[in-house]
Design a protein around this nucleic acid. Structure first.
Ligand SMILES: [Mn+2]
Ligand SMILES: [Mn+2]
Ligand SMILES: [Zn+2]
Ligand SMILES: [Zn+2]
Lengths: 149, 149
DNA sequence: TCCTTTATTGATAATGATTCTCATTATTAT
DNA sequence: ATAATAATGAGAATCATTATCAATAAAGGA
């Protein structure tokens, strides 16, 4: 009988809470960062050794669909996943050299305001129903600046 | 002797302007949109029938490195490319259902201002050297709203 | 123009991430 | 406990992108 912690999110839609899914959510909620499917796979095997990589992908896909997890594409060929529950919405700073990703939300007041305004304008102008956005800054992190110097 | 149109951008760095590269730039500068490597490959074969897909990838990589072309990851597993020369910087509206991507730059005044401010703040706070950013709004385009209704 | 140097190319194999298939197992509602 | 069926694991299959390597072509100088 897998942990009841996340049951609530599955009740309705006919999804079942299982051992593998619970273990994956456990990892996602504890490890912070922007994990690849493989990162998650290796961590989860400590909790649920028999799990297969396909199950990890299937579970992540489900979690993204129901809004429990955010999926990102920062370039580099691998998707990255982040636990969404309770977290504030935030934006990213991405190092083009080493791939490090930093979350930030310090400017969120002004940003949120402007972004709402843009959303309204774009929705009207292009008949788009906007439900999310992503703002990333790219550059070189502290370490990588030194290396390149 | 391949077209002299883009010669200027190659002079310095030891890169050679070749038939395949010229054909690829031709396609990129004429076809608008956010093309995949394969889109480009099929178009370029009309101009330069013997070209190989590896050459397309290599050329695109080079163009991105020297700033002639922008590369994007809107999700969906394939990178998308856009001719950068002369174009204004802009942001995107992406349909999560059909993948359509719309460029916009109407809000650029206010956006630019805020984004500069954020860049300055983030650079200082995180010791990051920021050189670009990407802002995408996700949702449903007009057509896809109808389908789902 | 001809030569030399070496960047570039095309074909193809290799890789890496993600998805699919399918027989087996586990979960849920009765 | 039983039936209905969602979920799983192993491995094959896909898909996009890279790496290899021998052959070719561009650039600059003689
Ligand atoms: Mn994040
Ligand atoms: Mn664009
Ligand atoms: Zn870095
Ligand atoms: Zn659409």
């Amino acid at each position: 009988m897998p942990g009841p912690r996340w049951r609530g999110n599955f009740k309705d839609r006919g999804h079942r809470m299982t051992g593998p899914r619970d273990a994956i959510l456990d990892v996602l909620s504890k490890k912070q960062g922007h994990l690849t499917a493989d990162d998650i796979f290796f961590e989860v095997r400590k909790l649920y050794s028999g799990i297969g990589i396909a199950t990890v992908y299937r579970a992540l896909d489900l979690f993204v669909r129901i809004g429990l997890v955010n999926k990102f594409d920062f370039g580099g060929g691998r998707s990255r996943y982040e636990f969404a529950s309770k977290e504030e919405h935030h934006h990213h700073l991405v190092c083009k050299n080493c791939g490090r990703v930093i979350d930030y939300d310090s400017f969120l007041d002004e940003e949120t305001e402007l972004i709402k305004k843009i959303e309204a304008e774009l929705s009207k102008k292009h008949y788009f129903k906007i439900d999310s956005h992503q703002l990333d800054f790219y550059g070189l992190c502290e370490n990588c600046q030194k290396e390149v110097e």
